[in-house]
């Protein structure tokens, strides 16, 4: 059996889900036997180099770059997995969804109590920067997502079990311990 190809990315997330992924500890050796990584922060490959079997997305979408990356994942991956609260629900970044974006920017760059050195009232508007969306979106509201792994961050065992199931085609082991959050 040829190895499955995996790609991962972190959009509007904190990399906590990727850290949790690394919590699979010594099983990482087993993982290398099962899969190969394509585009991913883990191996620092920046662009897709071949068709990918499983794409794993951490974080939701807060700017135009997130949208672009997410869409490229959908195009290049057969199966897409939303990993963690932010990818599934928008998570912490989505707390701004109840507040108009103008107010958020004003607070962050002009009026906020921690703004001390912006005398010229500069706002980030360089064309190089990604453009901010009016709201933070969960991934499945932008592209079709096939699977969802909840948690903040998801338990390493949950990620491992899901990967093994996806790679081997067997049913996923889902003991209560890996999806309880208390």
């Amino acid at each position: 059996m040829s190895k499955k190809i995996i790609a991962t990315t972190s959009l509007a997330g904190c990399f906590g889900c990727h850290m949790s992924f690394l919590d699979i500890d010594e099983r990482i050796l087993k993982l290398v036997e099962l899969v190969e990584f394509d585009k991913s922060p883990i191996n620092d490959i920046k662009v897709f180099t071949r068709p990918v079997d499983i794409g794993i997305i951490e974080g939701g979408c807060c700017n135009s770059e997130n949208i672009e990356v997410l869409k490229s994942f959908r195009e290049n991956c057969k199966v897409l997995v939303s990993l963690g609260e932010c990818a599934i629900m928008g998570g912490l970044p989505a707390l701004r969804n109840g507040i108009p974006i103008e107010e958020c920017l004003r607070e962050a760059y002009l009026d906020g109590p921690t703004v001390s050195e912006n005398k010229e009232q500069v706002l980030p508007n360089d064309p190089e920067l990604p453009m901010l969306l009016d709201k933070v979106f969960p991934c499945h509201e932008i592209v079709k997502v096939d699977y969802f792994l909840p948690g903040c961050a998801p338990d390493a065992d949950l990620i491992w079990n899901a990967l093994v199931a996806l790679v081997t085609g067997n049913e996923m082991e889902l003991p209560y311990e890996v999806v309880k959050f208390d």
Binding site: S64, E102, L133, D134
Partner: peptide, 27 residues
């Protein structure tokens, strides 16, 4: 799949506020 998501509309407010044009790259 149809999400009704409109990127152009979604970036409008922030771009207006910071004073930049919306530019979209086709890849």
């Amino acid at each position: 799949f149809d999400n009704e998501f409109d990127l152009e509309k979604s970036v409008q407010a922030a771009n207006n506020f910071v004073g930049r044009k919306s530019v979209f790259h086709q890849n």
